[in-house]
Computed example of a mutant assay.
Amino acid sequence: METSALKAKAAQIRMDLLTMIHGAKTGHTGGSLSNTDILTALYYRVMKIDPARPKWEERDRFMASKGHSVESLWCILADRGFIPKEELKTFSQFGTRLIGHPNNKVPGIEMNTGALGHGLAISVGMALAAKRDNKSYRVFCLMGDGEQAEGSVWEAAMAGAHYKLDNLVGIIDRNRLQISGSTEDVMGLEPLEEKWAAFGWNVVSIDGNDMDALVNAFEAVPTVPGKPTLVMANTVKGKGVSFAENVPHWHHHVPNDEQLQHALAELSAELERYQQEGQVR
């Protein structure tokens, strides 16, 4: 997909996830909105995947370490054909596969995640396996910025650098808000880029809601031979919905009927604008 089509797709995924959360009356809204552009770039442009063969040995791997923001991922897996779109209506309902965190009973999910701090360690193992088996696939691991307070993240970071895993990409959804407020008030992270660099990673800092920047960063991997890459994706929590942007309350707030219609109208206008942009090009 060209970037104008990717932007339009991200707007549609945001509409889908809001509708899904509204119907289920539960979900992590803010973080799913902030990471939608990241996942759209990966699943529609960058990653080597085949929905018809979710266990294809040569596939790129995606690990949602930030497991609570799964809503955007469910919508993308449905849109890509890993699961039926109708199944989105079962989100968080009794007996569903589409629970509030990634569930590997669903095609396209590598591992159950949810307890923060585990995804990067698993991703290190996957990337190391690729190296030892002479496989060309890459491993992408999405983390939250609040998750950086977990000690296991930094153990995994050391291991990734030690084994020179240049097929590993860590991504931080740096929206600067977590469930209890600002990340810097809860547990100060800065200077975060310098910390990752000190742990031996090549750090690329971008606007994480800029599709061109995302595609360029991900497609450049391995950026530095022999080093894993950390993409610091500076995002806006609640991105795309004016009344939810940068509002901590929307970490897991569910839109009411009126808010849903307002949000869908905003996103529909954005979708139309990007579609027109693509036609002009």
Rank of each mutant, 00 (worst) to 15 (best):
M1F: 10
M1Q: 11
A5K: 14
L6R: 01
K7V: 11
A10P: 04
A11H: 07
I21L: 06
I21F: 07
H22A: 11
G23S: 05
G23M: 02
T29C: 13
S34W: 06
T36D: 12
D37R: 00
I38R: 00
L39M: 11
Y43P: 01
Y43A: 06
Y44S: 02
K48W: 04
I49Y: 01
P54N: 07
P54Y: 12
W56H: 08
E57Y: 11
R61A: 12
F62L: 12
M63I: 15
S69V: 11
V70T: 08
E71Q: 15
E71K: 08
F82Y: 15
P84N: 09
L88T: 06
F91W: 03
S92Q: 11
F94V: 14
F94D: 13
G95K: 06
N104H: 13
K105D: 13
K105S: 12
V106T: 04
A115K: 08
L116A: 06
L120M: 06
V124A: 07
M126R: 04
A127D: 01
D133G: 06
R138V: 02
E147W: 04
Q148I: 02
A149R: 11
A149T: 11
G151H: 10
E155P: 14
A156Y: 06
H162C: 08
H162T: 14
N167G: 03
V169D: 00
V169N: 01
V169R: 00
R174N: 14
I179M: 14
E184F: 03
E184T: 08
G188F: 08
G188V: 13
K195Q: 10
S205I: 00
S205L: 00
G208S: 13
G208A: 09
N209Y: 08
D212W: 00
V221F: 01
G226N: 10
G240I: 12
V241R: 05
E245S: 14
P248M: 03
W250S: 12
H251G: 07
A265Q: 14
E266V: 08
E266Q: 15
L267Y: 09
L267S: 02
A269E: 15
Y274L: 09
Q275F: 07
Q276R: 15
E277F: 07
